[in-house]
Write a protein that binds this DNA or RNA. Structure first.
Lengths: 304, 304
DNA sequence: GTTATTATTACGCTTGACGCAATAGATTAG
DNA sequence: CTAATCTATTGCGTCAAGCGTAATAATAAC
C-alpha cells in the first residue's frame, strides 16, 4: 500500500460514517469511494468498515487503523506543505562555497548583511580553494575566482573583474633596482600561487604586446594570504589580487610593480550546479551578492 | 502528491547517488526511476536532484526533503506493519457486548480466563440489556439471550439453550396453594421482564398442548436480578432463566413452579456485525467462549 | 580518439482507476 | 403492510498513467 489516496478516503468515510457523504466531500462518486476502501482492505488484509446499506461503522481493526493513520497523515501533509513553503525565495537552506582568501574577507560582512535581510535562511558556508567538482560536495552556489570559465558543462555567471598586481615590499628594492619590463622579473625571487609543484606563468600586457614570464622562485602556496605575508617580510614578489594587497599598498607596506604592464584581470564568478531552473533562493542570493559587492567592495573589484 | 512510490524512489536515488543503482535495488528500470523522480519534482515544484550523466547529487531542497521524509516513511511503514500484525488471531482489540445479568455472572471468570490465554488482546466490555442495533455502538461480538433470531440481516451463532422456570418464594404458598396449571397463575402477582410497559406473555408447553398466559402484575423491570430479588422477598412469581435462580433453588430460597409445564428455552447466541468474513480474533473468541461455557457453566445451560 | 557507462526520451502496450448506469438491500412514510 | 427513497455495490466502457524496450545524448575512462 503505497498510495495514500485510499487511506484518505477511508478516513473520511470513517469520520462521516457514510460512503456517499465522503464522496461528496472528496468531490468524487460513491462508486469510487467503495472501490478505494475495498483496495485498502485488500491491501491490509482485513475488513475495516461494517456496511449496511443504511449505516456504516468501523470494525475494531478499522478504528485502530483510523486512529493510527490520522496522525501520520497530518504529519505527512504538514511536511509536504512545509517543503512546498521552502521553495519560496526567502527561506530554506543555502550551501555556499567560496575561496579561502576572498571568503575570509568577504563572507563575514556578506553573511551578516544577508542574514539581516533574510532571517529565515539557513546558511552553510564552506571555504575551500580547490576548484571542487561542484557535484562532489553538496553546494548550491560557489563563488570562484578564475581566469575564464572554459567549462561549458557548468552554469556560471560573471559578477565582476578582479584586478591583480605584482607586489613587493619596498625593502626589496633597496639593493636591487625595480624591474622596468617583465623580463627583468627573472632577477627576483617569485612567490607562486597554485596547487601544483610548477611555478606560475605570469602574463603581462602593454598596448598590444604580450609577455609571459615564469615566476621563478622556491615558494609555491595555494593560499594568497600566506604569499602576501611572505611578501610583507620581503620574501619576494607575488602576483596577487588587489583585494589582498590594496590595504598594504595604501599604507605603503607593499608597492605595486610594473604598473604600466597590466596583468589580465581574473573573473569573479558564481558557479551553479547543473540546475534545470535556478531555485528561487539561489536567485535571491545571486542578486543580493551582486548588489552587496558593488556597494561594499568596489575598491578592489572592477565592473566593466 | 499522494503516491509514496516516487518518494521511495527518490530516497533510494539520493542514498545511492545513482539512478541505475536505485533501479537495481528497487527491481525496476532506470527509465522508470527517472520518471518517478520527475513526477516528485513536478509535484513539489522544485528540483531535487542534480544530474550529470555521470554523477548525481541532491539540491539543498532535495537534501532537506530526504531528511524530512525518511523518518516519516519509516514511521508509516512501521504503522502499516503493525496493522498487518494486528490481524493475527491472538492480538488486537476486542469489543464485547453482553446482557447485564448474564454478563455480571459470566464475564469476570470468562475475561480472567481469556486474558490468561490471550494476553495481547485489549478487551472492551459493555454490559447492556437493550438489544442494540449492533451498528449503533461499535462492537465486535455481542452475547445475547433471545427467543429465536428472526432477524435475517444479522449474523448470529447459537451457542446453547437457556432453560427458564417460573419461580417463587416458598412463603408465597403458605396461604395460597401452588398453581397446578398455567391458568391458575392469574391468582398470583407476576413480575414481568421487559422494556415496555406491557406485561410479559408466558408460554407453557405440556406434551402437545400449549398455553399462553398474561403475567399480570404491577412490576415490570428490564433487569432479571432485580426481579429475582423481589421474588426472594415474596413479591410474586417471575419467569427467570436458571442461571439467575439455580442457586436459590438449590438452597431452597425459591421454588420452581409448574415443573411439568416447561417453558420454551431461550437461546444463548453470539451476534456479529455484518462481517464479510469473521475476523481471526473474533473467531478465536467465539471458539474460546463456546468451550469456556461448556466447561464452566453447564449447570444452568443446555446443549442440544 | 574510442569505448563504456549513465540519464533521458520516444514509442507501444498494459494495467488500473473512474464515471455512469443498473442492482440489491434497508429504512421511512403513508 | 406496501411503496418510495436512500444507500452501497457491481458490471461496463472509457481513458489516463505507468512500465519496459530501444534509441539518444552526454560524460568519464582507457
Amino acid at each position: 500500500m503505497d498510495d495514500l489516496g485510499p487511506i484518505r478516503v477511508f478516513l473520511e468515510v470513517a469520520r462521516q460514517s457514510s460512503f456517499t457523504g465522503a464522496a461528496r466531500v472528496l468531490g468524487t462518486t460513491p462508486a469510487s469511494v467503495t472501490r478505494a476502501v475495498a483496495r485498502l482492505e485488500e491491501a491490509l488484509g482485513q475488513q475495516l468498515l461494517l456496511r449496511t446499506t443504511r449505516r456504516v461503522s468501523t470494525t475494531s481493526a478499522g478504528a485502530m487503523i483510523a486512529a493510527r493513520y490520522t496522525g501520520l497523515l497530518e504529519e505527512f501533509d504538514a511536511a509536504t506543505e512545509q517543503i512546498r513553503q521552502e521553495s519560496l525565495p526567502d527561506r530554506g537552506q543555502l550551501r555556499l562555497n567560496a575561496p579561502m582568501s576572498l571568503g575570509l574577507r568577504l563572507m563575514p560582512g556578506l553573511v551578516e548583511s544577508f542574514r539581516l535581510a533574510y532571517p529565515h535562511v539557513q546558511l552553510q558556508i564552506r571555504l575551500t580553494d580547490r576548484l571542487i567538482d561542484i557535484m562532489e560536495e553538496p553546494c548550491d552556489v560557489a563563488i570562484r575566482i578564475s581566469q575564464a570559465p572554459a567549462d561549458k558543462s557548468t552554469i556560471w555567471r560573471k559578477i565582476c573583474e578582479v584586478p591583480r598586481h605584482v607586489v613587493a615590499a619596498p625593502a626589496l628594492f633597496e639593493r636591487v633596482s625595480r624591474p622596468q619590463t617583465p623580463d627583468e622579473i627573472d632577477r627576483f625571487s617569485c612567490l607562486s600561487y597554485g596547487d601544483t609543484s610548477e611555478p606560475e606563468t605570469w602574463t603581462f600586457q602593454k598596448d598590444r604586446s604580450r609577455r609571459q614570464v615564469q615566476a621563478r622562485g622556491d615558494v609555491i602556496s595555494n593560499n594568497g594570504d600566506l604569499l602576501y605575508e611572505l611578501v610583507l617580510k620581503g620574501g619576494g614578489m607575488a602576483l596577487l589580487p588587489d583585494f589582498i594587497t590594496s590595504e598594504g599598498v595604501a599604507s605603503g607596506a607593499v608597492e605595486t610593480v610594473l604598473d604600466d604592464w597590466p596583468v589580465p584581470m581574473l573573473w569573479l564568478t558564481l558557479f551553479y550546479p547543473p540546475y534545470e531552473k535556478l531555485p528561487p533562493l539561489v536567485a535571491t542570493f545571486t542578486d543580493f551578492f551582486e548588489v552587496y559587492l558593488e556597494e561594499n567592495a568596489s575598491g578592489a573589484f572592477r565592473w566593466s
